[in-house]
Design a protein around this nucleic acid. Structure first.
Length: 867
RNA sequence: GCCCAGGUGGCGGAAUUGGUAGACGCGCUAGCUUCAGGUGCUAGUGCUCGUAUGGGCGUGGAGGUUCGAGUCCUCUCCUGGGCACCA
């Protein structure tokens, strides 16, 4: 009678083979069915999957399986973001060719992913390093080029003078190369750019329509694009012998309304005027050098105080010619933004205020908050940036901020000394990488024809390269670089830079729709599948990857490949898997396997198992090898099965938050697997036969069980729809408890309607956990007598009549405190509820000797007696 | 410095969106089952006063709105995360 222990690893293998044999996850376009495209961010093939992958892909798989059961034609593909620096770095260190290591890693990880039992259509698998993939990417590049969305220009890179190589920002540590340790130089190289700024306005405004994106991500993108409306203004400069091009200083401001509060102007140390002046001014030259030593990191900037160097020049106020203000070179003015020059109004900008206090410049308030007297409103240590009325400002007096902005802009434009401008922080996307392991840029540089697109695509990465010398192997390859111009036939030079790997990931989701097409995408396929309905991945890609993909869809629309702006209709950013950390007395990280634990709760202590030395238990942190707090999913699955792992990573925390891996928690999941198996087994035994006729009437206990399960089903469905897997799981636990009780209670007397309800509940239960624990669900489904696969079953429908109770419990409060509760029919009248409430023992006791002032009755909700 | 997200039992968290705070899981306590080595079942488990019926206090803190606040408003403290001194 009692079932054998469920042998998860063994049964899971069996069910995976069955799914494979029946090709249950293979999909094709089918216009007659609604589609649903579920995608998780594809992995970089690092060699092994980690728990983060397990969590990410479990979430997507639950959605995919649920939607499939709901009748959708579900696209759920997987691929590899397989170009990139790690493989090339490994080649530098160990000499293994990037191609060899990459494809070996892919082979391993593919098998590991398969062991998770994901419902993926593997026939659509792709790797961005496949020539079939990057050939199409090169086509897109050329199409973009011809559409004017690609250009090249000189741009700065980090140059390692020892390794003779270009460094990514993350390879520059404290201004030094990560391998050589040599101070990094800035070099200008000719580089390719994609015109993402062309779409700045649309990328910004369309964010409002991405309703199924987290607000947080939309905000980050908004800030990244950084739109600001302002005014370009020209100031006349005086003092010193100025060359013609610098007689006027052009600044950008978003606050032209504060022009009468101006007390200085400041230019960036990189401003041409600053450079020019520095030639004759040693002090300035030294100051500029100093500002360059200041780091650009957040921390450096935060610590740095606002500093300036007085150039001796004066800027003339445009509306009050007698007012002339000093012009500084200042460390807080950035050349990349606006014109690299500002006018400072200390009263209404914190940075300007800090600067003015330091250099004892006047601080004059010109915007006065409502209710303040303009005569005695002053600014202390905090600039006033809020709304208000303009004062002390000649013709602007009495206007509001917006009105004044407008007035100044109009007057400046009329005089030809100003121009309204919308400025973006977003810059064009530099995609040139001076590396081997990436998609070759399909360009040939010819002395006579200029830039010529390569013909004969793909431009293949040559495989006969070595990594024994620093620099890009493509650059020194015997035949790759030197080619004839496709146009004129003269000797020419092939571009040896490759593309940023963010390009690869900017359109892979589109390629999945038709992974083997001879064009970048098959129009029919993308029209059917796109956009991705649910995209799931880490928040670390909130800005770049997602913004680039949004740009790509627009660019691909403008080049006729697709007709869609937004690639991801729904986005979800999941939290990490974290784990406790342990260190010994010397601060060395300790592997959990070497530790034994003593005590519980706050008393819990850890010691080294071998020596008994104390170990400090640290807070849970992101799993990483260096901290020795990783748990290998492959090992885990081999022991407990994929279902236990999938269940656990979704159960303990809300999906957007981090989840702490703990052995105790995992044990709980493992027990649940076994428990569900026993429950279904017992229900199959004690419940009605498969396909038994539905009873005409249900007993009280049968109805109660059915209500519980149909309500539970309703709630679990809702929780999966809204990706709240942890609450779905909590409900399933609850239902398991209820089913267990019902099975116990059923022992005594014969009740056919309860038997029917037990089977119904067991079936609903199995179908509910099927998206999360698909293998166990198949096993249970078979135990329930079915020859069919549960993966092919439609999602059960809750019976509406069972979702509302006739008898309900409502709380009765006295002065807002609960004193008793009331059982009453659902549609009882207010008067009936009131009468019944006042008749309760607990209410009478609490009311004793008090006078009832008021009774609030909210039918079906609550009664509150005010006394 | 700016922006964002959070603070609920010993822990992870729930509260279907203003209506019984603490569901569910973990842990713990007691008991049962010849159960022996990651087992199952039953009961209990916010704090506190009380033998108990029962009472008081409780969602970081202080105010406020409301018949009623974990949920809304104001101020404040703390913890994470992000960033671009963006004029």
């Amino acid at each position: 009678m009692v079932a054998e222990r469920y042998n998860a690893p063994e049964r899971e293998k069996h069910w995976r083979k069955t799914w494979d044999d029946e090709e249950v996850y293979k999909v094709e376009e089918n216009e007659s069915r609604p589609k649903h495209y579920v995608l998780e961010m594809f992995p970089y093939p690092s060699g092994r999957i980690h728990m983060g992958h397990v969590r990410n892909y479990s979430m997507g798989d639950v959605v995919a399986r649920y939607k499939r059961a709901k009748g959708y034609n579900v696209l759920h593909p997987m691929g590899w973001d397989s170009f990139g620096m790690p493989a090339e770095n490994a080649a530098l260190q160990s000499g293994v060719h990037p191609k060899d290591s990459t494809y070996a890693h892919i082979a391993t990880m593919r098998e590991q992913l398969k062991e998770m039992g994901l419902s993926l259509d593997w026939s659509r698998e792709l790797a961005t390093s496949d020539p079939e993939y990057y050939e199409q990417q090169q086509r897109l590049f050329i199409d973009f080029l011809q559409k004017g969305l690609v250009y090249h220009k000189k741009s700065k890179v980090n140059w390692d003078p020892v390794d003779h190589t270009v460094l990514a920002n993350e390879q520059v540590i404290d201004g030094k190369g990560w391998r050589s340790g040599a101070p990094v130089e800035q070099r200008e190289l000719d580089q390719w750019f994609l015109k993402i700024t062309e779409y700045a306005e649309d990328l910004l405004s369309a964010l409002d329509r991405l309703e199924r994106w987290p607000d947080k991500v939309r905000l980050m993108q908004r800030n990244w694009i950084g739109r600001s409306e302002g005014l370009l203004m020209q100031f006349a400069l005086e003092g010193g012998a100025l060359p013609k091009e610098h007689e006027k200083l052009e600044v950008f401001t978003t606050r032209p309304d504060t022009i009468f509060g101006m007390s200085f102007c400041a230019i960036s140390p990189d401003h041409p005027l600053a450079k020019q002046l520095a030639v004759e001014d040693e002090g300035l030259s030294a100051f500029i050098k100093e500002t360059h030593q200041m780091g650009t990191s957040e921390e450096d900037i935060e610590r740095a105080e606002k500093r300036g160097y007085d150039t001796g020049l004066k800027a003339v106020h445009p509306f009050r010619k007698t007012t002339k203000v000093p012009v500084y070179v200042a460390n807080f003015v950035l050349m990349q933004y606006g014109t690299g020059a500002i006018f400072g109004c200390p009263a209404h900008d914190q940075r300007d205020l800090d600067f003015a206090r330091k250099y004892k410049l006047p601080v004059k308030a010109v915007v006065v908050p409502e209710g303040e007297d303009p005569k005695d409103f002053t600014v202390g240590d905090e600039a006033y940036t809020g709304p208000g009325g303009i004062a002390n400002s000649s013709f602007l007096d009495g206007m509001g901020v917006d009105e004044a902005k407008n007035e100044v802009a109009t007057r400046m434009e009329k005089r030809g000394e100003g121009q309204r401008k919308i400025n973006y922080r977003l810059r064009d996307w530099g995609i040139s990488r001076q590396r081997y392991w990436g998609c070759p840029i399909p360009i040939i540089h010819c002395e006579t024809c200029g830039v010529v697109p390569a013909e004969d695509l793909p431009v293949r990465l040559p495989e006969d390269v070595t990594f024994d010398k620093p620099g890009n192997p493509l650059d020194r390859h015997p035949t790759f670089k030197h080619v004839d111009c496709p146009k004129c036939g003269a000797p020419a030079r092939r571009e040896t830079d490759t593309m940023d790997t963010f390009v690869d990931s900017s359109w892979y989701f589109a390629r999945f729709c038709s992974p083997h097409a001879k064009t970048p995408v098959d129009r029919k396929a993308v029209d059917y599948w796109l956009p991705v309905d649910q995209y799931i991945g880490g928040v670390e890609h909130a800005i770049l990857h997602l913004l680039y993909s949004r740009f790509f869809m627009r660019a691909m629309t403008d080049t006729g490949h697709v007709d869609i702006d937004e690639p991801f209709a729904g986005l979800f950013t999941q939290g990490m898997v974290i784990h406790e950390t342990y260190r010994d007395k010397n601060g060395q990280w300790i592997n959990p396997d070497d530790i034994s634990f003593q005590g519980e709760g706050r008393e819990r202590k850890a010691i080294l198992a071998k020596s008994g030395e104390p170990v400090t238990i640290g807070p849970p942190e992101k799993m990483s090898k260096s901290k020795k707090n990783t748990v290998d999913p492959v090992d885990f699955i081999a022991n407990f099965g994929a279902d236990t792992a999938r269940w656990f990573v979704l159960s303990d925390s809300p999906p957007e938050r981090d989840v702490a891996w703990s052995d105790e928690g995992v044990q709980g999941s493992w027990r649940m697997v076994q428990r569900l198996w026993r429950l279904i087994d017992e229900a199959a035994e004690k419940g009605a036969e498969k396909g038994a006729k539905r009873p005409a009437e249900f007993s009280g206990s049968a109805t109660e069980l059915r209500r519980t399960f149909h309500k539970g089903l309703h709630w679990v469905s809702h929780n999966i729809e809204t990706l709240r897997f942890n609450t779905a799981i909590a409900t399933i636990y609850d239902l398991a408890n209820k089913l267990g009780s019902a099975l116990q209670g059923q022992k005594n007397d014969k009740d056919p309607s309860l038997e029917w309800a037990l089977r119904e509940s067991a079936e609903i239960m199995t179908q509910m956990f099927a998206p999360i624990m698909p293998h166990l669900a198949e096993e249970c489904w078979a135990r329930l007598g079915y020859n069919s696969l549960i993966v092919k079953q439609p999602w059960p429908e809750a019976e509406q009549a069972l979702l509302v109770d006739d008898q309900i419990t409502i709380a009765v409060q006295i002065n807002g405190k609960r004193r008793d509760e009331l059982q009453i029919t659902r549609n009882a009248s207010k008067a009936d509820i009131e009468a019944a409430a006042l008749d309760l023992e607990g209410v009478k006791r609490a009311l004793e000797g008090r006078e009832i002032k008021k009774i609030i009755v909210v039918p079906q909700r609550i009664v509150n007696v005010v006394a």
